[in-house]
Design a binder for these strands. Structure first.
Lengths: 239, 239
DNA sequence: ATGTCAAGAATGATCGATCATTTTTTTATT
DNA sequence: AATAAAAAAATGATCGATCATTCTTGACAT
């Protein structure tokens, strides 16, 4: 109710696209990185002031978010940021395990030398990313490490990119984003666990070794471990 | 471009909900049953006349459909009914096989007596449904058999309903609908193949026998067979 | 004929006002 | 004080006008 997306009105994203699309992107990011808290009311008029725009673009953006599952909508009741729950976290984690299991096995089966190179590069870039933001600059507060998040997602998506199914790839992308929301809310971004770097490295090696069983197992354990961590943090303070 | 959803303006669905939601439902059905052809332009003004309403509700409905994947949208270019392709059909079929394989195995593992009864009933209702519409009544042309479609989906969804994953159930639902669009376009609704009734019956029996491997295999073959049929029909006339 | 470019038309996107519903506050009653 | 009904406020949904972009058309030059 009090958290608001950055007070940027019609800025970055606004170039080239429509207002509705720009706002959609901004709101989506705000939800994924926790700037907009679960269950926060998405008041159309308030948002239209914040974004210095009319009601229509806001409404269109909200409709997209609701269809996507990041917001909830009830006729004549308006929009709300989707709630989170441990049950949904479990469901999400299970789905990620299932989907990525298929994805990496298929990729190992079908992926060529180009795929190997791509996962190698993705892994390398992820390893190079600092886990926490530099805290430098003179502007606003310490931002969550966007670069790491991007590299992280790129790595996971590249792992399954050779599976041959656009549908599965897209689904995994959405699942990754939904899960990222939980990671953000548990403040696990970048500054993560014991050593995720090693986990990613191990998965990479298994994939390069074309050891499907090992890769799939490591990947599944990786998701499960992340989920457990999030659960531990979120499970305590009942938002 | 010429096919239009039934000229009903603000009718059935309009009760109780908002215009946007009612129109969303109508348009969605029109796309799924082929009334709106793939690639058909979804002109906002035309639609607003057809539905006797303003621009906003139409736009909201279209935004939802686009996010859902049933329509495509490009900024400043408007909306279009999503195109179909044999590639997408393959992708969709593969995804259905994967998802339902997991779903039915898990259901067989976790489902109790109540689940057995529910699939039995769903199967019975499906078997009872006439495969083609009665052609009776004095109104418009012979409608595709809506009742069968509903029972058909209910049967498949019930099969996986005990899998324990709301996410998987929802995903299968969306996949079913997307596939239904292909079935409709190939005019396979109700009046289907050699004998789908037997296929459904076999799957039911395997499920009741708790034979996961057999059930999963039959289910996969069922989807594959349907896909092949659709491919045969659509593959010829390149829409 | 073909290609280019400038109206003009069509369509998409946005705005602010208005209507409808829901929520909150106030008032009346026990 | 507690409850219920009524009024007021707030919010969601919709409308029609307007602005912006894209598409069409046709004059013109080559």
């Amino acid at each position: 109710m009090r958290n608001m997306p950055s007070q940027n009105a019609i800025k970055d994203s606004e170039l080239k696209t429509t207002r509705a699309s720009a706002i959609y992107v901004d709101l989506r990011n705000a939800i994924l990185n926790g700037t907009l808290s679960p269950e926060a009311k998405l008041n159309v008029r308030s948002l239209s002031e914040q974004f210095q725009t009319g009601l229509s673009p806001i409404r269109e953006a909200l409709n997209r978010l609701a269809t996507e599952g990041l917001a909830h909508h009830a006729d004549n009741k308006g929009f709300v940021v989707s709630p989170i729950s441990l049950d949904e976290l479990d469901d999400l984690t299970q789905a990620r395990c299932w989907m990525n299991d298929i994805g990496i096995r298929k990729s190992i089966e079908l992926g060529g030398a180009d795929w190997e190179e791509r996962i190698l590069i993705a892994s390398h870039r992820l390893a190079r990313c600092p886990r926490v933001s530099k805290e430098a600059g003179g502007s606003s507060a310490a931002q969550p490490d966007l670069a790491w998040d991007i590299a992280h997602k790129a790595f996971h998506q590249t792992l399954i990119s050779a599976c041959g199914s656009p549908w599965l790839i897209e689904t995994c992308s959405q699942l990754f984003d939904s899960a990222e929301r939980y990671r953000s809310l548990a403040s696990l971004t970048g500054t993560s666990r014991s050593d995720p770097r090693d986990e990613h490295q191990d998965i990479l090696n298994a994939a390069l070794d074309r050891d499907a069983d090992r890769a799939a197992t490591l990947l599944t354990e990786h998701f499960q471990r992340t989920s457990d961590l999030v659960r531990r943090v979120i499970g305590h303070d009942p938002t």
